[in-house]
Amino acid sequence: MSLPQSVNARLRRVPAWPVYLVGVLPVFWFFYLGLTGGLGPEPIRALEQELGRLSLQVLIAVLAVTPLRKFTGISLLKFRRALGLLVFFYVAVHLAVWLFLDVQIWNQIWKDIVKRPYVTIGMVGLVLMVPLAMTSNDWSLRRLGAGSWRRLHRLTYVAAVLGAVHFVMLRKGWQLEPILYLLAIVALLAARVRWRELRGAAKMRRVGS
């Protein structure tokens, strides 16, 4: 048995449910830190940032599942739904912190969403994730059929790019950290493109014309 095969065989015996359990822990941990001074003098801002960063990190893990299988043969597919739902959970708490702890002023919230491009972009990303979270179950997968389910879930790519752009935009100046997140996401999306087929199609088009 090759290495990827033996890894896959071992992974088959690991259940996916502990991912949910472990995944919600950081959120409680951050709130605990915020209440006890562990997030510094501005815990609301820090909480927003930690949750935002965590959602992008796990989102990158979600996007890495397919390239990992393509290039190494190791499949983490059975954990992907749990990771994806965790991303949605983190983003939802991130939004809740912004609404209820940070801004708190309802007419300013709406103005921010409409007027501030980085807020608008973040909100669009979140809204795109709602149908994804709602259909992350076996019943929806059967109901939609594998083809349309997969097409719908390509929205993940859009949401991921929007999330990273949101991060780049909210920093003062061009800062390295958010740009690295954006590059990682773009690279993982590029790793999905079947370049050879694309080139082949282009050649066909040229021959045809």
């Binding site: 709130f31 915020g34 209440l35 003098p41 501005e42 815990p43 609301i44 801002r45 909480l47 702890l101 002023i105 300013q108 103005k111 921010d112 501030r116 491009p117 980085y118 935009m169 909210l170």
Partner: peptide
């Protein structure tokens, strides 16, 4: 990119 109408005093907790 953001409103300057209000501010938060640091050190006030969560």
């Amino acid at each position: 990119r953001w409103s300057q109408a209000s501010e938060r005093r640091i050190g006030g907790g969560l």
